[in-house]
Design a protein around this nucleic acid. Structure first.
Lengths: 249, 249
DNA sequence: CGCTGGCTTGATTCTATTCAATTTTCGTGG
DNA sequence: CCACGAAAATTGAATAGAATCAAGCCAGCG
């Protein structure tokens, strides 16, 4: 665990900054931390790697560290219950997880792709936060971001019909994947399994499959392969994603 | 708006404290703020009242203040869209809202019952937070609480069948209404309209009505009046609330 | 006292679940 | 590198449960 070989320059927190109103274009995600702050965090962090499918921590485990994703995708499971396993969130580089509980983790998490992350021991993190008031403002901002994220998830779950649900989900993932700087990816990357998508949307696997089929056969989206969807008809897509639940196509 | 007649002793934040592991019993809500902190907050706050049904602020309004509920119930609407109006949360005394955005509110809120609240101007609040590092720890704690709340909401929304959904909702509301100190209320108070419950659960009004009917006719709950439900058969109730979705009664 | 809006209840339609069979994909070991 | 086996995904048919449409009920309020 030597932090000798650290890739970019320390932990990075990506978020839509809700405080600053000026120069930054709204809706885009930015790096919240200054180089100095990242260096501070890097000093207490170690780099960890997880294989695809590997569990990172389980609900109820003693929570000794928080994580910051460098690369890969992490899935959060709010409950461990064998069946009926709901998916709480899909996390991307720049996101933080394992926070929000002292003592024990309140949810489980797993690596959906191979994952590289910073591991930040809680005790060191708290010491750092206490000595750097500007840092906990960033934490607050990040928490607000996650809250908005969770609220969007609720909005998706509240939709009754499968096709709009799925369209909204794709829209969400696309926004999440817009990285700071880069313009717009050609395809939406879907590294998670169809069952995980189903669990995230509150649908069954077959329902998700059929909804995808419909979107494809209606020429709204197209698949390059199982993991890469491209939006063919943006107009129709948005119409479906934010249509009131009645009014058919 | 004179803050001369302030009821208890300043703003109060109720939350399940996730940091302290000791003496406090888990699952119970506590007052986070010290008397001193409450006094500080009181100095910058004014007391406001809203009539039942009154809108407190609208999505997109300039956000000049946050609120802390003294008494009454507040409903959060994540979107203003006329139809398909989803309900994001029901808030109780001790909760904070109107936070989490600088510049403009990101959701709408309304008084579901007559509401008394502290109104804390953002500029003063931020100044106070900057000068009192211990206070923003409390804010972080409260945000974590709201996040867990939102995640629980997701869990409820992910349920496919109406009856378990409703049972889970009642369970949630009951926990929310457990005030610091008091033991357990005899009845669950449901001040919100059935349509708001439906919007919160991602169901239609008739579906909610039928689900209530079933719970009542199965002797699991009983109504004292439209607003007060009592759990008659706690065993069966919990069985329904956390049953896997298949296996019927 | 009658009205209005929220709630309940009923009949029908529609869509997602469920159960189940088949195909594809992917990881493993030969 | 290919072949195999297991897990995931697709597809199909039948069912169940909620949405929808619509009518009547109850309660609060002028």
């Amino acid at each position: 665990m030597p932090s000798s070989a650290k890739p970019p320059g320390g932990p990075a927190i990506h978020a839509i900054n809700p405080w600053v109103v000026g120069n930054l274009k709204p809706g885009a995600r930015h790096q919240l931390l200054s180089d100095d702050e990242r260096a501070q965090l890097a000093r207490i962090s170690s780099i960890v790697r997880f294989k695809k499918g590997e569990q990172i921590y389980n609900k109820g485990d003693p929570a000794d560290a928080a994580f910051n994703i460098v690369s890969g995708v992490v899935t959060i499971y709010p409950e461990l219950s064998g069946k009926h396993r709901h998916v709480g969130a899909f996390l991307y580089p720049g996101d933080i997880f394992g926070l929000s509980e002292e003592g024990f983790y309140t949810n489980a998490s797993g690596a959906t792709t191979p994952v590289v992350a910073y591991r930040m021991p809680m005790h060191a993190l708290r010491r750092l936060l206490a000595s750097r008031p500007d840092l906990d403002v960033d934490v607050i901002v990040k928490l607000c971001e996650e809250l908005r994220q969770a609220q969007r998830h609720s909005l998706v779950l509240a939709r009754k019909k499968a096709v709009p649900k799925l369209a909204m989900f794709l829209d969400l993932q696309e926004h999440l994947q817009m990285l700071p700087g880069e313009p717009a990816a050609a395809a939406i990357y879907l590294p998670m399994s169809r069952s995980d998508i189903a669990a995230y949307l509150g649908l069954t696997l077959p329902a998700v499959s059929r909804a995808f089929r419909k979107l494809v056969s209606d020429k709204v989206i197209a698949f390059r392969d199982r993991q890469h969807a491209r939006i063919v008809d943006r107009k129709a897509f948005e119409g479906i994603a934010d249509a009131e639940d009645r009014l058919g196509a």
